[in-house]
Nucleic acid binder design. Structure first.
Lengths: 254, 254
DNA sequence: CAGCAGCGTTGCGTATTTTGCATCGCTGGT
DNA sequence: ACCAGCGATGCAAAATACGCAACGCTGCTG
Protein backbone atom coordinates (compact mmCIF):
# COMPACT_ATOMS: atom_id res chain seq x y z
CA UNK A 1 0.00 0.00 0.00
CA UNK A 2 2.43 2.62 1.21
CA UNK A 3 5.65 1.48 -0.36
CA UNK A 4 8.07 3.89 1.24
CA UNK A 5 6.69 3.15 4.67
CA UNK A 6 6.97 -0.53 3.90
CA UNK A 7 10.62 -0.08 3.05
CA UNK A 8 11.24 1.84 6.23
CA UNK A 9 9.66 -0.90 8.29
CA UNK A 10 11.78 -3.49 6.55
CA UNK A 11 14.82 -1.42 7.43
CA UNK A 12 13.84 -1.65 11.08
CA UNK A 13 13.35 -5.39 10.81
CA UNK A 14 16.79 -5.85 9.26
CA UNK A 15 18.34 -3.68 11.94
CA UNK A 16 16.72 -6.00 14.45
CA UNK A 17 19.23 -8.61 13.35
CA UNK A 18 22.09 -6.31 14.20
CA UNK A 19 23.62 -2.92 13.41
CA UNK A 20 24.30 -2.20 9.75
CA UNK A 21 25.77 0.43 7.46
CA UNK A 22 23.90 2.32 4.78
CA UNK A 23 25.43 0.16 2.09
CA UNK A 24 24.61 -3.09 3.80
CA UNK A 25 21.01 -2.02 4.24
CA UNK A 26 20.66 -0.94 0.62
CA UNK A 27 22.08 -4.24 -0.58
CA UNK A 28 20.09 -6.45 1.77
CA UNK A 29 16.81 -4.75 0.97
CA UNK A 30 17.57 -4.15 -2.68
CA UNK A 31 16.66 -0.48 -2.40
CA UNK A 32 18.80 2.32 -3.74
CA UNK A 33 21.25 3.82 -1.30
CA UNK A 34 19.83 7.28 -1.61
CA UNK A 35 16.35 6.05 -0.71
CA UNK A 36 17.60 4.15 2.27
CA UNK A 37 19.56 7.19 3.37
CA UNK A 38 16.52 9.41 3.33
CA UNK A 39 14.35 6.92 5.15
CA UNK A 40 17.05 6.47 7.75
CA UNK A 41 17.16 10.19 8.25
CA UNK A 42 13.48 10.46 9.10
CA UNK A 43 13.73 7.37 11.25
CA UNK A 44 16.68 8.92 13.06
CA UNK A 45 14.88 12.23 13.57
CA UNK A 46 12.24 10.41 15.55
CA UNK A 47 14.83 8.26 17.34
CA UNK A 48 13.51 5.06 15.81
CA UNK A 49 17.01 4.47 14.57
CA UNK A 50 20.33 5.56 15.98
CA UNK A 51 23.29 6.57 13.94
CA UNK A 52 26.62 6.29 15.65
CA UNK A 53 29.88 8.07 14.97
CA UNK A 54 31.06 5.51 12.46
CA UNK A 55 27.89 5.84 10.39
CA UNK A 56 26.51 2.57 11.53
CA UNK A 57 22.83 2.35 12.27
CA UNK A 58 21.08 0.49 15.02
CA UNK A 59 17.62 0.45 16.53
CA UNK A 60 16.83 3.64 18.39
CA UNK A 61 15.45 4.54 21.78
CA UNK A 62 11.92 5.39 20.62
CA UNK A 63 11.43 1.76 19.85
CA UNK A 64 12.37 0.81 23.38
CA UNK A 65 10.10 3.44 24.81
CA UNK A 66 7.12 2.47 22.68
CA UNK A 67 7.60 -1.18 23.44
CA UNK A 68 7.72 -0.47 27.14
CA UNK A 69 4.59 1.67 26.92
CA UNK A 70 2.73 -0.81 24.74
CA UNK A 71 3.52 -3.69 27.05
CA UNK A 72 2.35 -1.69 30.05
CA UNK A 73 -0.94 -1.03 28.31
CA UNK A 74 -1.76 -4.70 28.51
CA UNK A 75 -3.49 -5.15 31.77
CA UNK A 76 -2.83 -8.90 31.86
CA UNK A 77 0.85 -8.36 31.71
CA UNK A 78 0.96 -5.95 34.62
CA UNK A 79 -1.28 -8.11 36.76
CA UNK A 80 0.52 -11.32 35.90
CA UNK A 81 4.10 -10.05 36.29
CA UNK A 82 4.60 -10.54 40.06
CA UNK A 83 3.03 -14.00 40.01
CA UNK A 84 5.11 -15.06 37.04
CA UNK A 85 8.24 -13.86 38.81
CA UNK A 86 7.38 -15.89 41.89
CA UNK A 87 6.70 -18.98 39.80
CA UNK A 88 9.90 -18.52 37.84
CA UNK A 89 11.94 -18.15 41.00
CA UNK A 90 10.34 -21.21 42.54
CA UNK A 91 10.89 -23.62 39.66
CA UNK A 92 13.57 -21.99 37.58
CA UNK A 93 12.09 -22.76 34.17
CA UNK A 94 11.36 -20.48 31.22
CA UNK A 95 7.88 -18.97 31.60
CA UNK A 96 5.91 -17.30 28.82
CA UNK A 97 2.78 -15.18 28.93
CA UNK A 98 1.02 -15.15 25.57
CA UNK A 99 -2.06 -13.84 23.85
CA UNK A 100 -3.69 -15.00 20.65
CA UNK A 101 -3.68 -12.94 17.46
CA UNK A 102 -5.57 -14.70 14.71
CA UNK A 103 -4.00 -18.07 14.06
CA UNK A 104 -0.86 -17.17 15.95
CA UNK A 105 0.14 -16.64 19.52
CA UNK A 106 2.30 -13.73 20.61
CA UNK A 107 4.60 -13.76 23.62
CA UNK A 108 3.87 -10.67 25.66
CA UNK A 109 6.17 -11.55 28.52
CA UNK A 110 9.02 -13.93 29.09
CA UNK A 111 11.00 -14.92 32.13
CA UNK A 112 14.31 -16.59 31.47
CA UNK A 113 15.18 -19.97 32.82
CA UNK A 114 17.61 -19.96 35.71
CA UNK A 115 19.71 -22.71 34.16
CA UNK A 116 22.19 -21.92 31.50
CA UNK A 117 20.19 -23.55 28.74
CA UNK A 118 18.14 -20.72 27.31
CA UNK A 119 15.43 -20.60 24.72
CA UNK A 120 15.58 -18.48 21.60
CA UNK A 121 12.12 -17.06 22.17
CA UNK A 122 11.55 -13.39 22.81
CA UNK A 123 8.82 -10.96 23.78
CA UNK A 124 6.89 -10.01 20.63
CA UNK A 125 7.71 -13.20 18.78
CA UNK A 126 4.85 -15.14 17.26
CA UNK A 127 4.22 -18.86 17.08
CA UNK A 128 1.70 -21.14 15.42
CA UNK A 129 -1.45 -21.88 17.35
CA UNK A 130 -1.52 -25.57 16.44
CA UNK A 131 1.86 -26.66 17.73
CA UNK A 132 2.15 -24.79 21.00
CA UNK A 133 0.61 -25.44 24.40
CA UNK A 134 -0.33 -21.76 24.55
CA UNK A 135 -2.15 -21.99 21.23
CA UNK A 136 -4.07 -25.07 22.28
CA UNK A 137 -5.20 -23.43 25.50
CA UNK A 138 -6.45 -20.31 23.75
CA UNK A 139 -8.20 -22.17 20.95
CA UNK A 140 -9.76 -24.76 23.24
CA UNK A 141 -11.61 -22.01 25.02
CA UNK A 142 -13.05 -20.32 21.93
CA UNK A 143 -16.73 -20.68 20.94
CA UNK A 144 -16.98 -23.34 18.25
CA UNK A 145 -17.86 -20.92 15.46
CA UNK A 146 -14.92 -18.61 16.06
CA UNK A 147 -12.57 -21.51 16.66
CA UNK A 148 -13.49 -23.01 13.30
CA UNK A 149 -12.92 -19.69 11.60
CA UNK A 150 -9.46 -19.49 13.14
CA UNK A 151 -8.70 -23.06 12.19
CA UNK A 152 -9.31 -22.19 8.55
CA UNK A 153 -6.22 -19.99 8.73
CA UNK A 154 -4.05 -22.61 10.35
CA UNK A 155 -1.62 -24.14 7.90
CA UNK A 156 -0.88 -27.16 10.12
CA UNK A 157 2.74 -27.12 9.05
CA UNK A 158 4.85 -29.79 10.70
CA UNK A 159 7.34 -27.98 12.90
CA UNK A 160 8.71 -31.28 14.19
CA UNK A 161 7.90 -34.94 13.50
CA UNK A 162 5.44 -34.82 16.41
CA UNK A 163 3.43 -31.78 15.33
CA UNK A 164 -0.30 -32.40 14.93
CA UNK A 165 -0.93 -31.79 11.24
CA UNK A 166 -4.45 -33.01 10.98
CA UNK A 167 -7.48 -30.86 11.74
CA UNK A 168 -9.55 -33.69 13.18
CA UNK A 169 -6.74 -34.81 15.44
CA UNK A 170 -6.23 -31.24 16.54
CA UNK A 171 -9.92 -30.85 17.40
CA UNK A 172 -9.69 -33.99 19.51
CA UNK A 173 -6.66 -32.55 21.25
CA UNK A 174 -8.56 -29.33 21.94
CA UNK A 175 -11.39 -31.32 23.51
CA UNK A 176 -8.90 -33.01 25.80
CA UNK A 177 -7.37 -29.64 26.71
CA UNK A 178 -10.78 -28.16 27.49
CA UNK A 179 -11.61 -31.09 29.69
CA UNK A 180 -8.41 -31.21 31.71
CA UNK A 181 -7.98 -27.44 31.92
CA UNK A 182 -4.41 -27.31 30.63
CA UNK A 183 -2.43 -28.22 27.52
CA UNK A 184 0.82 -29.92 26.73
CA UNK A 185 3.22 -29.82 23.83
CA UNK A 186 5.59 -32.76 23.64
CA UNK A 187 8.22 -31.58 21.19
CA UNK A 188 5.49 -30.55 18.79
CA UNK A 189 6.72 -27.03 18.24
CA UNK A 190 10.42 -27.41 18.75
CA UNK A 191 12.47 -30.57 18.99
CA UNK A 192 13.82 -31.31 22.46
CA UNK A 193 11.44 -28.89 24.14
CA UNK A 194 8.36 -29.89 26.09
CA UNK A 195 5.84 -27.39 27.28
CA UNK A 196 2.72 -27.12 29.43
CA UNK A 197 0.25 -24.24 29.45
CA UNK A 198 -2.87 -23.13 31.29
CA UNK A 199 -5.43 -20.39 30.68
CA UNK A 200 -5.62 -16.99 32.35
CA UNK A 201 -9.27 -15.96 32.50
CA UNK A 202 -10.86 -12.52 32.50
CA UNK A 203 -14.03 -11.40 34.25
CA UNK A 204 -16.20 -12.93 31.53
CA UNK A 205 -14.69 -16.34 32.16
CA UNK A 206 -13.05 -16.62 28.77
CA UNK A 207 -9.32 -17.22 28.38
CA UNK A 208 -7.54 -13.92 27.65
CA UNK A 209 -3.99 -15.19 27.88
CA UNK A 210 -1.87 -18.22 28.71
CA UNK A 211 0.96 -18.97 31.04
CA UNK A 212 3.22 -21.68 29.72
CA UNK A 213 6.36 -23.38 30.96
CA UNK A 214 8.97 -24.60 28.48
CA UNK A 215 11.60 -27.11 29.47
CA UNK A 216 14.32 -28.69 27.34
CA UNK A 217 14.17 -32.48 27.58
CA UNK A 218 17.79 -32.59 28.71
CA UNK A 219 16.91 -30.45 31.74
CA UNK A 220 13.84 -32.34 32.82
CA UNK A 221 11.82 -35.18 31.39
CA UNK A 222 8.14 -35.14 30.54
CA UNK A 223 7.14 -36.77 33.82
CA UNK A 224 8.93 -34.11 35.83
CA UNK A 225 7.27 -31.40 33.77
CA UNK A 226 3.81 -32.84 34.40
CA UNK A 227 4.47 -32.58 38.12
CA UNK A 228 4.42 -28.81 37.69
CA UNK A 229 0.81 -28.79 36.46
CA UNK A 230 -0.85 -28.19 39.85
CA UNK A 231 1.57 -25.39 40.55
CA UNK A 232 0.94 -23.87 37.12
CA UNK A 233 -2.83 -24.05 37.61
CA UNK A 234 -2.40 -22.31 40.94
CA UNK A 235 -0.58 -19.39 39.27
CA UNK A 236 -3.07 -19.00 36.45
CA UNK A 237 -5.87 -19.22 39.00
CA UNK A 238 -4.37 -16.40 41.06
CA UNK A 239 -3.76 -14.21 38.03
CA UNK A 240 -7.30 -14.84 36.78
CA UNK A 241 -8.78 -13.87 40.13
CA UNK A 242 -6.63 -10.73 40.16
CA UNK A 243 -8.12 -9.89 36.78
CA UNK A 244 -11.63 -10.16 38.14
CA UNK A 245 -12.48 -13.73 37.24
CA UNK A 246 -14.97 -15.41 39.56
CA UNK A 247 -14.29 -19.14 39.72
CA UNK A 248 -17.92 -19.92 40.62
CA UNK A 249 -19.28 -20.57 37.15
CA UNK A 250 -18.13 -23.96 35.97
CA UNK A 251 -18.66 -23.47 32.27
CA UNK A 252 -18.71 -20.19 30.40
CA UNK A 253 -22.18 -19.72 28.80
CA UNK A 254 -20.49 -20.17 25.36
CA UNK B 1 12.28 14.49 4.58
CA UNK B 2 10.05 11.52 3.97
CA UNK B 3 6.66 12.91 4.89
CA UNK B 4 4.56 9.77 4.79
CA UNK B 5 7.07 7.88 6.88
CA UNK B 6 7.10 10.79 9.30
CA UNK B 7 3.35 10.58 9.62
CA UNK B 8 3.49 6.85 10.21
CA UNK B 9 6.06 7.30 12.95
CA UNK B 10 3.91 9.93 14.58
CA UNK B 11 1.03 7.48 14.49
CA UNK B 12 3.15 5.04 16.44
CA UNK B 13 4.09 7.70 18.95
CA UNK B 14 0.45 8.64 19.50
CA UNK B 15 -0.48 4.98 19.89
CA UNK B 16 2.20 4.82 22.58
CA UNK B 17 -0.11 6.95 24.70
CA UNK B 18 -2.86 4.39 24.37
CA UNK B 19 -5.04 2.59 21.85
CA UNK B 20 -6.99 4.78 19.43
CA UNK B 21 -9.49 4.59 16.61
CA UNK B 22 -8.90 5.70 13.04
CA UNK B 23 -10.84 8.88 13.60
CA UNK B 24 -9.02 9.81 16.78
CA UNK B 25 -5.69 9.33 15.08
CA UNK B 26 -6.70 11.41 12.07
CA UNK B 27 -7.90 14.22 14.32
CA UNK B 28 -4.94 14.15 16.69
CA UNK B 29 -2.42 14.17 13.87
CA UNK B 30 -4.38 16.42 11.57
CA UNK B 31 -4.00 14.01 8.68
CA UNK B 32 -6.86 12.89 6.49
CA UNK B 33 -8.59 9.70 7.57
CA UNK B 34 -7.88 7.96 4.31
CA UNK B 35 -4.16 8.60 4.63
CA UNK B 36 -4.08 7.38 8.19
CA UNK B 37 -6.02 4.30 7.16
CA UNK B 38 -3.53 3.38 4.48
CA UNK B 39 -0.55 3.96 6.72
CA UNK B 40 -2.16 1.86 9.43
CA UNK B 41 -2.67 -0.91 6.95
CA UNK B 42 0.99 -1.14 6.04
CA UNK B 43 1.92 -0.84 9.69
CA UNK B 44 -0.48 -3.65 10.51
CA UNK B 45 0.86 -5.85 7.72
CA UNK B 46 4.25 -5.78 9.38
CA UNK B 47 2.74 -6.17 12.85
CA UNK B 48 3.95 -2.77 13.98
CA UNK B 49 0.37 -2.01 14.84
CA UNK B 50 -2.44 -4.27 15.87
CA UNK B 51 -6.02 -3.83 14.87
CA UNK B 52 -8.56 -5.46 17.11
CA UNK B 53 -12.10 -6.58 16.39
CA UNK B 54 -13.63 -3.22 17.25
CA UNK B 55 -11.37 -1.38 14.82
CA UNK B 56 -9.19 0.06 17.52
CA UNK B 57 -5.49 0.18 16.96
CA UNK B 58 -2.68 -0.43 19.40
CA UNK B 59 1.04 -1.00 19.17
CA UNK B 60 1.90 -4.31 17.61
CA UNK B 61 4.12 -7.22 18.40
CA UNK B 62 6.94 -6.34 15.98
CA UNK B 63 7.70 -3.37 18.14
CA UNK B 64 8.09 -5.57 21.17
CA UNK B 65 10.25 -7.99 19.29
CA UNK B 66 12.52 -5.31 17.86
CA UNK B 67 12.87 -3.63 21.21
CA UNK B 68 13.81 -6.88 22.84
CA UNK B 69 16.36 -7.62 20.11
CA UNK B 70 17.79 -4.11 20.16
CA UNK B 71 18.22 -4.15 23.88
CA UNK B 72 19.94 -7.52 23.76
CA UNK B 73 22.38 -6.14 21.22
CA UNK B 74 23.78 -3.82 23.88
CA UNK B 75 26.47 -5.77 25.59
CA UNK B 76 26.45 -3.55 28.68
CA UNK B 77 22.85 -4.31 29.35
CA UNK B 78 23.30 -8.07 29.24
CA UNK B 79 26.39 -7.97 31.41
CA UNK B 80 24.91 -5.54 33.90
CA UNK B 81 21.50 -7.16 34.29
CA UNK B 82 22.25 -9.75 36.99
CA UNK B 83 24.23 -7.26 39.09
CA UNK B 84 21.52 -4.65 38.81
CA UNK B 85 18.97 -7.22 39.90
CA UNK B 86 21.00 -8.09 42.95
CA UNK B 87 21.46 -4.43 43.87
CA UNK B 88 17.79 -3.73 43.37
CA UNK B 89 16.79 -6.65 45.55
CA UNK B 90 19.23 -5.62 48.26
CA UNK B 91 18.20 -1.98 48.55
CA UNK B 92 14.79 -1.85 46.96
CA UNK B 93 15.21 1.42 45.10
CA UNK B 94 14.66 2.29 41.46
CA UNK B 95 17.81 1.55 39.45
CA UNK B 96 18.57 2.85 35.97
CA UNK B 97 21.20 1.86 33.47
CA UNK B 98 21.83 4.64 30.96
CA UNK B 99 23.98 5.54 28.00
CA UNK B 100 24.69 8.92 26.50
CA UNK B 101 23.39 10.00 23.11
CA UNK B 102 24.56 13.48 22.26
CA UNK B 103 23.40 15.91 24.89
CA UNK B 104 20.91 13.46 26.28
CA UNK B 105 20.99 10.27 28.27
CA UNK B 106 18.86 7.27 27.40
CA UNK B 107 17.64 4.70 29.88
CA UNK B 108 18.50 1.29 28.51
CA UNK B 109 17.36 -0.64 31.54
CA UNK B 110 15.22 0.03 34.55
CA UNK B 111 14.44 -1.91 37.68
CA UNK B 112 11.39 -0.82 39.60
CA UNK B 113 11.49 0.22 43.18
CA UNK B 114 10.10 -2.33 45.59
CA UNK B 115 8.06 0.28 47.45
CA UNK B 116 4.80 1.41 46.08
CA UNK B 117 6.05 4.83 45.08
CA UNK B 118 7.12 4.40 41.48
CA UNK B 119 8.85 6.67 39.05
CA UNK B 120 7.40 7.63 35.67
CA UNK B 121 10.63 6.80 33.86
CA UNK B 122 10.82 4.06 31.30
CA UNK B 123 13.32 2.16 29.18
CA UNK B 124 13.99 4.22 26.04
CA UNK B 125 13.14 7.54 27.63
CA UNK B 126 15.65 10.35 27.28
CA UNK B 127 16.76 12.92 29.80
CA UNK B 128 18.95 16.02 29.77
CA UNK B 129 22.61 15.51 30.47
CA UNK B 130 22.96 18.56 32.71
CA UNK B 131 20.34 17.79 35.31
CA UNK B 132 20.81 14.09 35.89
CA UNK B 133 23.38 12.18 37.89
CA UNK B 134 23.77 9.85 34.92
CA UNK B 135 24.50 12.75 32.60
CA UNK B 136 27.09 14.21 34.92
CA UNK B 137 28.88 10.89 35.20
CA UNK B 138 29.06 10.38 31.46
CA UNK B 139 30.11 13.94 30.69
CA UNK B 140 32.68 14.11 33.49
CA UNK B 141 34.54 11.27 31.87
CA UNK B 142 34.69 12.73 28.37
CA UNK B 143 37.89 14.22 26.90
CA UNK B 144 37.71 18.01 27.27
CA UNK B 145 37.29 18.67 23.55
CA UNK B 146 34.39 16.32 23.07
CA UNK B 147 32.81 17.39 26.34
CA UNK B 148 32.84 21.01 25.22
CA UNK B 149 31.27 20.08 21.92
CA UNK B 150 28.48 18.28 23.74
CA UNK B 151 28.01 21.20 26.11
CA UNK B 152 27.33 23.47 23.14
CA UNK B 153 24.16 21.47 22.56
CA UNK B 154 23.00 21.59 26.15
CA UNK B 155 20.19 24.08 26.64
CA UNK B 156 20.63 24.24 30.42
CA UNK B 157 16.90 24.48 30.89
CA UNK B 158 15.83 24.66 34.51
CA UNK B 159 13.90 21.48 35.20
CA UNK B 160 13.50 22.43 38.86
CA UNK B 161 14.60 25.42 40.96
CA UNK B 162 17.80 23.52 41.81
CA UNK B 163 18.88 22.66 38.26
CA UNK B 164 22.36 23.89 37.33
CA UNK B 165 21.71 26.38 34.54
CA UNK B 166 25.16 27.87 34.22
CA UNK B 167 27.90 26.35 32.11
CA UNK B 168 30.72 27.38 34.42
CA UNK B 169 28.95 26.00 37.47
CA UNK B 170 28.28 22.80 35.57
CA UNK B 171 31.95 22.43 34.62
CA UNK B 172 32.87 22.83 38.28
CA UNK B 173 30.33 20.15 39.16
CA UNK B 174 31.83 17.84 36.53
CA UNK B 175 35.28 18.35 38.07
CA UNK B 176 33.88 17.34 41.44
CA UNK B 177 32.24 14.28 39.92
CA UNK B 178 35.45 13.23 38.20
CA UNK B 179 37.36 13.55 41.44
CA UNK B 180 34.98 11.66 43.68
CA UNK B 181 34.08 9.02 41.09
CA UNK B 182 30.32 9.40 41.36
CA UNK B 183 27.65 12.03 40.85
CA UNK B 184 24.58 13.25 42.67
CA UNK B 185 21.44 15.04 41.66
CA UNK B 186 19.58 16.73 44.50
CA UNK B 187 16.17 17.44 43.03
CA UNK B 188 17.84 18.97 39.99
CA UNK B 189 15.98 16.93 37.40
CA UNK B 190 12.71 16.25 39.13
CA UNK B 191 11.33 17.81 42.27
CA UNK B 192 11.27 15.47 45.28
CA UNK B 193 13.65 13.00 43.70
CA UNK B 194 17.30 12.62 44.61
CA UNK B 195 19.67 10.50 42.65
CA UNK B 196 23.21 9.15 42.73
CA UNK B 197 25.11 7.65 39.80
CA UNK B 198 28.43 6.00 39.07
CA UNK B 199 30.24 5.07 35.86
CA UNK B 200 30.44 1.66 34.21
CA UNK B 201 33.76 1.43 32.38
CA UNK B 202 34.74 -0.56 29.33
CA UNK B 203 38.11 -2.13 28.52
CA UNK B 204 39.53 1.22 27.42
CA UNK B 205 38.81 2.71 30.82
CA UNK B 206 36.25 5.21 29.56
CA UNK B 207 32.72 5.35 30.91
CA UNK B 208 30.34 3.53 28.59
CA UNK B 209 27.25 3.65 30.77
CA UNK B 210 25.97 4.64 34.19
CA UNK B 211 24.14 2.97 36.98
CA UNK B 212 22.01 5.38 38.96
CA UNK B 213 19.70 5.07 41.92
CA UNK B 214 16.67 7.34 42.21
CA UNK B 215 14.88 7.82 45.50
CA UNK B 216 11.90 10.04 46.29
CA UNK B 217 12.71 12.32 49.24
CA UNK B 218 9.67 11.03 51.09
CA UNK B 219 11.08 7.51 50.96
CA UNK B 220 14.59 8.34 52.09
CA UNK B 221 16.49 11.54 52.77
CA UNK B 222 19.67 12.66 51.11
CA UNK B 223 21.88 11.37 53.92
CA UNK B 224 20.40 7.91 53.64
CA UNK B 225 20.92 7.97 49.89
CA UNK B 226 24.57 8.91 50.28
CA UNK B 227 25.08 5.84 52.43
CA UNK B 228 24.43 3.77 49.34
CA UNK B 229 27.42 5.19 47.47
CA UNK B 230 29.94 2.49 48.48
CA UNK B 231 27.46 -0.18 47.54
CA UNK B 232 26.78 1.54 44.20
CA UNK B 233 30.49 1.82 43.44
CA UNK B 234 30.85 -1.86 44.21
CA UNK B 235 28.20 -2.74 41.62
CA UNK B 236 29.60 -0.51 38.90
CA UNK B 237 33.07 -1.89 39.68
CA UNK B 238 31.86 -5.45 39.22
CA UNK B 239 30.02 -4.67 36.00
CA UNK B 240 33.05 -2.82 34.64
CA UNK B 241 35.33 -5.76 35.39
CA UNK B 242 32.85 -8.11 33.73
CA UNK B 243 33.10 -5.88 30.68
CA UNK B 244 36.86 -6.21 30.56
CA UNK B 245 37.94 -3.13 32.49
CA UNK B 246 41.23 -3.46 34.34
CA UNK B 247 41.20 -1.26 37.47
CA UNK B 248 45.02 -0.95 37.50
CA UNK B 249 45.32 2.28 35.52
CA UNK B 250 44.39 5.17 37.78
CA UNK B 251 43.70 7.72 35.08
CA UNK B 252 42.73 6.96 31.51
CA UNK B 253 45.42 8.36 29.14
CA UNK B 254 42.86 10.98 27.99
C1' DC C 1 -39.37 -0.66 12.41
C1' DA C 2 -37.56 3.13 9.99
C1' DG C 3 -34.55 6.83 9.76
C1' DC C 4 -30.34 8.86 11.18
C1' DA C 5 -25.75 9.59 12.60
C1' DG C 6 -21.06 8.09 13.04
C1' DC C 7 -17.27 5.73 11.30
C1' DG C 8 -14.61 3.03 8.33
C1' DT C 9 -13.84 2.18 3.50
C1' DT C 10 -13.21 2.78 -1.67
C1' DG C 11 -12.24 4.76 -6.57
C1' DC C 12 -10.32 8.20 -9.01
C1' DG C 13 -7.97 12.33 -10.88
C1' DT C 14 -4.44 15.52 -9.47
C1' DA C 15 -0.15 16.86 -7.85
C1' DT C 16 3.14 16.18 -4.53
C1' DT C 17 6.77 12.93 -3.30
C1' DT C 18 9.75 9.79 -3.95
C1' DT C 19 13.04 7.86 -6.83
C1' DG C 20 17.29 6.91 -9.38
C1' DC C 21 21.10 8.81 -11.80
C1' DA C 22 25.26 11.17 -12.02
C1' DT C 23 28.40 13.54 -9.45
C1' DC C 24 30.80 15.23 -5.68
C1' DG C 25 33.34 14.94 -1.24
C1' DC C 26 35.18 12.80 2.52
C1' DT C 27 37.95 9.29 4.97
C1' DG C 28 41.13 5.69 5.46
C1' DG C 29 44.36 2.62 3.55
C1' DT C 30 48.55 1.62 0.68
C1' DA D 1 49.94 11.41 -2.67
C1' DC D 2 46.85 8.62 -4.84
C1' DC D 3 43.08 5.50 -4.99
C1' DA D 4 39.13 3.02 -3.39
C1' DG D 5 35.00 2.80 -0.82
C1' DC D 6 31.15 4.91 1.03
C1' DG D 7 28.15 8.53 2.14
C1' DA D 8 25.84 12.77 0.55
C1' DT D 9 23.44 15.99 -2.84
C1' DG D 10 20.72 18.26 -6.89
C1' DC D 11 17.71 17.54 -10.39
C1' DA D 12 14.40 15.86 -13.69
C1' DA D 13 11.14 12.02 -14.52
C1' DA D 14 7.55 9.29 -12.81
C1' DA D 15 5.46 6.61 -9.59
C1' DT D 16 3.07 7.42 -5.44
C1' DA D 17 0.34 9.24 -1.95
C1' DC D 18 -3.26 12.47 -1.33
C1' DG D 19 -7.80 14.48 -0.71
C1' DC D 20 -12.38 14.56 -2.26
C1' DA D 21 -16.82 12.72 -2.65
C1' DA D 22 -19.57 9.02 -2.03
C1' DC D 23 -20.84 4.46 -0.29
C1' DG D 24 -21.97 0.88 3.21
C1' DC D 25 -22.20 -0.79 7.52
C1' DT D 26 -23.47 -0.68 12.51
C1' DG D 27 -25.73 0.83 16.30
C1' DC D 28 -28.95 4.47 18.20
C1' DT D 29 -33.17 6.83 18.68
C1' DG D 30 -37.71 8.29 17.73
Amino acid sequence: MSTSLGKALRILVVLGEGPASLDELATRLDVHKTTVLRLLRTLAEEHFVHRDDQHRYRLGSRLFELSSRGLDQREVRTVAAPHLHAFNRAHGHTVHLSERDGAEIVYIDKLESLDHVRMASRVGLRGPVHSTAAGKVLLADLPAAERDRVLDDVGFVARTPRTITDRAAYLAELARVREQGWAQDREENEASINCIGAPVRGPSGSAVATVSVSVPTIVAGYDQLIELVPSLLAVTGTISRDLGWRPSREEPPA
